[in-house]
Amino acid sequence: MIENRPVSTFISHAILIAGIAIVIFPIWITIVAASHDAARLLQVPLPLGLGDQFFDNLKYVLGKGVGDSAPLGLMLFNSLIMALMIAFGKIAISLLSAYAIVYFDFRFRMFFFWMIFITLMLPVEVRIIPTYAVVADLGMLDSYWGLTIPLIASATATFMFRQTFLSVPDELLEAARIDGAGPMRFFFDILLPVSRTSIAAMFVILFIYGWNQYLWPLIVTTDKSMVTIVMSIKGMMEALEETPQWDYIMMTSLLAMIPPVIVVILMQKIFVKGLTETEK
């Protein structure tokens, strides 16, 4: 800011703090609700401060699950496997295909590019039923493969790595060629290390994307042992009791959001850089 005006600076901060309060409020209430017992959460007005049931609730949901659901420990594990498989799978296949498209001149290069590109914005939700049929035919229902592989087939990461590779100076490849590096050696020795910021940013984006998947897991899994934590919420809210067991539901919500939130906050700098510099 150019002028030194204390009043307008104060107003700016005030608006920001108010905005943050609104944004953070639901999350605060989640923590509050997770720290009270069910009975307290049925008495109006609801508490705005922390209660003392937090660890009891935590122990309960992790070990036993809510209603007839699987224990949350297992769900967290499933979510982790799904998120990691999606993130690593996408990153791996996208790095390879982006490398081919940017660094090789070969027949059907543009055809392949367009085929990948057209999947760029087609989320699984759009092709959900026929994709379900394919996965069912391949016998991949209720498996980690069925959960993850169809979600790996989208082009966001390919597109982003393509942008990254295009911004790598040509001279690096030329220098590497003079230094006797073949295509694969250049890829592993030079290109990957040079692109590590993008790869890390993509990991954050894809980890969150994978962790937060809802509709697809809902459809391809029926076995209780394959349930992820994000999809368990729905079942809990529809449990047979007349009113939902908010303490457990909120504790579950909290557990479901903690891993991705931690990933985002820890890798914030890289993530913001990757998100805003390359997706545009």
């Binding site: 100076p169 001279e171 690096l172 030329e174 220098a175 590497a176 003079i178 030079i190 290390p193 040079v194 590590r196």
Partner: peptide, 12 residues
């Protein structure tokens, strides 16, 4: 052996 205008040193 070649020396490039922008040196093309491997940054990592």
């Amino acid at each position: 052996a070649m020396v490039f205008q922008n040196y093309a040193l491997y940054p990592h």
